[in-house]
Design a protein around this nucleic acid. Sequence first.
DNA 1: AAAACTTCTGTGAACGTGCACAGTATGGCT
DNA 2: AGCCATACTGTGCACGTTCACAGAAGTTTT
Lengths: 331, 331
Amino acid sequence: MKRPTIHDVAAAAGVSRGTVSRLLNGDKYVSPKARVAIERAISETGYTVNRAARSLVTQRTGSVVMVMSEPHEKLFEDPNYSTLIRVAIRMLAEHDLSLVMMMAGDEADRERVVRYVRGGHADGVLLVSTHAGDPLLDALQSGPPAVSCGAVIGRETVIPYATADDRLGARQMTEYFVGLGRRRIAMITGPMDTPGGIQRLEGFTDVLGRRATSKLIAHGDWTQASGERAMTELLERTPDIDAVFVASDLMAAGALAALRAAGRRVPDDVAVGGFDDSSVAVSTHPPLTTIRQPLAEMAQATMRLLLALIDGAEHVEPVILPTELVIRESA
Amino acid sequence: MKRPTIHDVAAAAGVSRGTVSRLLNGDKYVSPKARVAIERAISETGYTVNRAARSLVTQRTGSVVMVMSEPHEKLFEDPNYSTLIRVAIRMLAEHDLSLVMMMAGDEADRERVVRYVRGGHADGVLLVSTHAGDPLLDALQSGPPAVSCGAVIGRETVIPYATADDRLGARQMTEYFVGLGRRRIAMITGPMDTPGGIQRLEGFTDVLGRRATSKLIAHGDWTQASGERAMTELLERTPDIDAVFVASDLMAAGALAALRAAGRRVPDDVAVGGFDDSSVAVSTHPPLTTIRQPLAEMAQATMRLLLALIDGAEHVEPVILPTELVIRESA
DNA sequence: AAAACTTCTGTGAACGTGCACAGTATGGCT
DNA sequence: AGCCATACTGTGCACGTTCACAGAAGTTTT
C-alpha cells in the first residue's frame, strides 16, 4: 500500500535507479529499450517522484511564493490580482512549479514570510502591492530571486517588475479631455505612496502643465467611498469643472455618485474618465470611459522575469507595457 | 554560507540532534537548561527546519492544495473565493501549513492535480466550485482528506462541506416579495448543475408552490450577460411580472439593465432581489436588495472541517449557515 | 541499599532522490 | 588487431530530518 518509489520502477523495468532518474530528468543517455520499459513501469506502478526527496538533494523546492502585502479585505477582488494569480498558476505549472500564497499584512505574517523564504522553502518570490519601505524588502535581499507585478517604489533598480505605463495612460485620458474641448479638468489621484498614484498624476500634469493647479487635484485611496468624498470636495472647491480624470474605476464609480448627488449630468456637464477598465467600468451608469491596462500581458511579463531569474539569468530589465483608451459613455 | 542544519544548532547548544528535534516538535522531555541553550543557538544561527527533510521522514508535506475547477476568467473576483483564500491562508498559517493553488480547468490541469495529490504532495485538498461528476472526484477518492466550500452535487455524503443555507435565503427573499404585495413573482436561476442553482430555486418554489410556473422561471449562468438575457426573455413571456428574484447579484445587475431598456422602473414597476450581497449590489442603480451569505463564516467552517480531518478526525458533519435579507432600494 | 520509576539525552537507521564516478558494451578508425 | 570515442548502465554517497531505542542521571518507593 506504500507509494511506489524510484526503486520499484527500476525493478519493474529491469534497470537501475540511476537510469530511471536519468529518464525523469531528461538526460539523453537512455537507450530506447530502457526508455519504453521504464515508461511502462511508471504507468503500471503509478509512480510519481517524491518532491521532498528530490528537494533534499537538489536544494530546490519546486515552488514559488506569492506575497501579498495589502491586508486589504477585497484584495482578491481586484482584477489585477486575480489575473496575476491565474497567469502565475498556469505559467508555473508549465515549469513544474507550484504557487503558494502568503499574506504579509501584520508583523507576524511578515516574519512568517521571511522565515519561509530565508528558510529556503521557495525558489522564487512574487511580490504584489508591496509598499515603499516595507521591512520585508530588506529581509528578502539575500535569498531566491524576487520580482514584483508593478514597480516597488524606491526599489525600481533592485526588484525587477512589469507594469502598465501608468503615465502614458494618464496622458491619453487627459489629452482626450483636452481634445473634447474641456477647459476645467480635475483629477482624483490614488494614494501617493503607490506607483499608480504617482505616475498617473504625473501623466496628468505632463499634459496640462501649469493648468493643473492644486485646486483641481484631490486624493483618494482607491476605494469607492474615497472617490465620492474627493469628488464632493472638488465640486466645493471648483464648482465649474467640466471634466475629471479619476485614477481608478472604483473611485470613478464613487465620483459618479457624488456628481449625481450634486445634480450634474455625465457626460454633458462633467466628463468622467476612469482607469483600469475593470468590471465596474461597465456596470456604472453611464458606463465609464477608461484606460485599459494589459493585465494579462503584465502578469505574463512578470512571470517571465521570475522564471528567467529562477533559471539562472543574472539580470533582467523591467517591462513597461502600453495602455489604451477605451471610450464609453461617461466622456 | 550554507544554511544551518539541526546539527549546527545542536553543536552550538552543546547537545545532540535528538534533543533539538524534540524541542522543535514539542516533545516534553527537554530540560530547562537544554531548552534555553537550544533556543539561543537557534536564534544565533538563524536556523529554520528543512521542510523537505522533515517531509521525507514524516510523510507529511505541510501544505494544503486549493483546487479550482472553474476555468472561469473572473474566478477570483468572486468575493466567495477571495474570502476563502484569505481565510484559508490565515487559518492554515496558524497550523504551520501553507496554501498551494492549482487550477483544474482542462484535462491537462486535472491530470496535474491528480498526480500532485496522489503523489502525496499535499496533506489536504480544498475543493472550490467543483462540478457534479467531475472526474477529479473519483481520482481523489483515496488520498488525503478533501473538503469543499459549498456542497459538491452528488457527493454530499462523501465530501464534507460548509455552505450558506441557499434554500433559506431564497425563501427569505420570496417571502419578502409576497409580504410586499407582489403578485407576479418571477425568478432567474443559476445553472442547474450547481448547488446554488438548485437550492435557490427550491426555496423559491417552497414559498410560491403552484404559483411558480415555468413561464415565470428563466435560467442564467451567473454572468451579467446571462441575467440580462434571461430578464428580456421573462419580459417577453410574461409582461406583467412585478417582481423578480435573481439568484446572484451579478445576474441581477444584468436584469436591471434589461428592465431599464424595457422602460420598467425599479422598484416601482418591478421589484428586484439579488443574492450574495457582493460589491456589485451597492454599485448598481438602484442598489440591490439582496441576501447576504456569511462568507467569512463559511470559509472558516470549511477550513475547520479540513483541519479536523488532517488532524485525524474520522468523520465530520457538513455545516449549513443561515442567510440574511439585506433591504436596499431595488425592492 | 536495592529496585523501580521518571526525566532526560545521544545514536543509528531510514525516508527517496540526484549526482559523480566507475564501469561495460558497441562500433568506427587507424 | 588494437585503440578510442560514444552510448549507455549501475553503485555509493549525501541531502537534513524524525523516530525508536538504549541508556544515564536523578528521584522516589520498597
